[in-house]
Design a protein around this nucleic acid. Structure first.
Lengths: 108, 108
DNA sequence: CTATCATTAAACTATATGGTTGAACAAAGG
DNA sequence: CCTTTGTTCAACCATATAGTTTAATGATAG
């Protein structure tokens, strides 16, 4: 329970950086080694490796050794937790939506 | 375009703290003043006010003055941006899902 | 075994964040 | 106007983060 809240912290924090979201989008399409990922950015290899580590700690990707390379692979489950969490807000706010509209009109 | 990416950074960063997610869940149900919100936490009033400001900067809530209180109200649109963004990953990974399953089995 | 390629780890700097306290500002009520 | 209540702002501290460079480890090819 508490663990899952921490996990969610890590997932959202990982997604809060556009470089990491970009990396995630890449490996969602094609699995890539860290070196291959790094080629697409101005940042140093070590910098990219750190970003990948953040994604890994959040459980968004895993690494699998293939020869001497380390291949980065996306993990669906953790992202779906984040997604469903956001949907919970969606439910709650939809109940309040009309109320909100009125208030925003008042503003003008 | 670039602005939206920055906005998304702010939205995910705002959601990466469990206190802020908790506040968001509260105001999604019932609009509350900052003081009312603060009553539910051990943190100081100013601490909560800062968290609310983070949510506000991300566009997740707005404040509306009601008498001498400042009422915090959730804003649907920004959250839906985040949600749809996550769904984009969902689409991409679903294409790769079978491929992934195989790899995870190999692991064992 | 050695040389090489891919990755990880460590040490460091700069900046951002979460939290505090205390002072200043704003609106309402006497 | 003065006081009270609710909020904001500024200064400060501790810790976390993003990035760098350099050294160390792992795996493969010869």
């Amino acid at each position: 329970m508490v663990e899952q809240r921490i996990q969610l912290d890590l997932v959202f924090a990982a997604l809060s950086d556009s470089t990491r979201r970009d990396i995630l989008a890449r490996v969602a399409k094609i699995e890539m080694s860290i070196g291959e990922i790094a080629e697409h950015y101005k940042m140093t290899f070590a910098g990219i490796a750190k970003h990948v580590k953040v994604l890994e700690r959040a459980g968004l990707v895993i690494k699998k050794r293939r020869g001497k390379e380390q291949v980065v692979i996306i993990v669906p489950s953790s992202l779906s937790i984040a997604s469903s969490h956001i949907e919970q807000y969606a439910k709650m706010w939809s109940e309040r939506f009309n109320q909100l509209e009125t208030l925003l009109k008042e503003e003008k």
